[in-house]
């Protein structure tokens, strides 16, 4: 394989991982924008999504499309329920209490799934049965290009939803000034629930796509992609939707190139170093705005 196609191949790997990071990062960034909360349990929704899809197909023999929809709906509801039970009672509490609660919810979900289904990894069924795509000298397998296409479509729909619809505009208003939004007659609780539902639905899709590329399901599978997507959201500017997408792709590509050209053992360390450098030099992220605290 020539140097160029080797590089292109790594780029494809990076874009694949980046698409998934971007989908997950959207959930982090939207929830942060609306509820000013880093929802560390968000990564575990990916795991729940993967398990639901797995059992729907292998235990209940549901058709693939139905399994996917079921997984999305269950995760969206789970997101709403987690917010109502764990975060809503703490809405006026300090940020650190919320953060600790979010970590608690994350461990709870992991432990619950370990208790229910054991820690043993289970194989994830093949759900994308399409031929590989050959471009020049490189060949891209189906899960890779489907992941990219699905992510781009979902991100475009989300963008239109947030920019053009009444609920989307209300979400942006709550994110900018929740009190003023209430004065418009916007129901904050409903807006927060919708945000959690959308974020968790995207996480379900991310989980299914992730397991299509790496077909192993265990109760901890969400934590590493979850953390990386969180870094992606911070890198792009937490609270910014285009920032989450940009951060996701940048992170995926950095990671893939590091694995290929520097060291695969060091790749996580390098990804975290990127976060530290970003936080030192531009804490608001690439597309984040330096919001002045109101006096």
């Amino acid at each position: 394989m020539s140097e160029v196609s080797q590089f292109l191949m790594q780029l494809v790997n990076g874009i694949n991982a980046g698409s998934i990071y971007a989908l997950i990062a959207l959930g982090y960034t939207m929830v942060y924008g609306i509820a000013k909360l880093i929802n560390f349990a968000h990564g575990d929704i990916i795991m729940v999504g993967a398990y639901i899809c797995l059992f729907a197909i292998s235990s209940f023999n549901l058709p693939i499309w139905l399994a996917i929809i079921l997984s999305i709906i269950v995760c969206a509801l789970l997101g709403i329920v987690v917010e109502k039970i764990a975060y809503k009672p703490l809405r006026s509490a300090s940020r650190i209490s919320l953060l600790i609660t979010a970590i608690g919810v994350s461990y709870f979900l992991q432990s619950l799934f370990q208790l229910l289904f054991s820690a043993n990894p289970r194989p994830f069924p093949t759900i994308i049965n399409l031929p590989a795509l050959s471009i020049g000298s490189i060949s891209i397998s189906a899960p890779y290009y489907i992941t990219f296409i699905v992510s781009v479509i979902l991100m475009s729909i989300l963008h239109l939803f947030v920019q053009k619809t009444k609920i989307g505009k209300a979400m942006r208003a709550v994110s900018e000034d929740s009190q003023a939004a209430q004065l418009m007659g916007i129901n904050i609780d409903k807006t927060i629930s919708i945000t959690f539902a959308i974020g968790s639905a995207l996480a379900a899709v991310a989980g299914i796509l992730y397991c299509s590329s790496y077909p192993m399901v265990n109760p901890y599978l969400g934590s590493l992609p979850g953390i990386k997507a969180f870094i992606a959201a911070v890198l792009g500017g937490i609270g910014s939707i285009p920032g989450a997408v940009l951060g996701g792709f940048i992170l995926g590509i950095i990671e893939a190139l590091t694995k290929a050209y520097i060291s695969s053992q060091l790749s996580d360390a390098i990804v975290f170093t990127v976060l530290i450098i970003m936080l030192v030099f531009k804490p608001s992220g690439i597309l984040g705005k330096n919001v002045k605290e109101k006096v």
Binding site: K166, K169, A170, R172, A173, E176, D177, Q179, A180, A181, Q182, L183, M184, G185, I186, N187, I188
Partner: peptide, 29 residues
């Protein structure tokens, strides 16, 4: 959110317009 529906609206102190949205979007809100 129900109070607005009852016919009471407020122009808050320091105006608090949604600065990231257009004038028209603010009016729509």
């Amino acid at each position: 959110d129900k109070i607005v529906k009852l016919g009471l609206a407020q122009v808050p102190e320091r105006r608090r317009v949604f600065s990231q949205q257009t004038v028209e979007e603010n009016l729509e809100l």
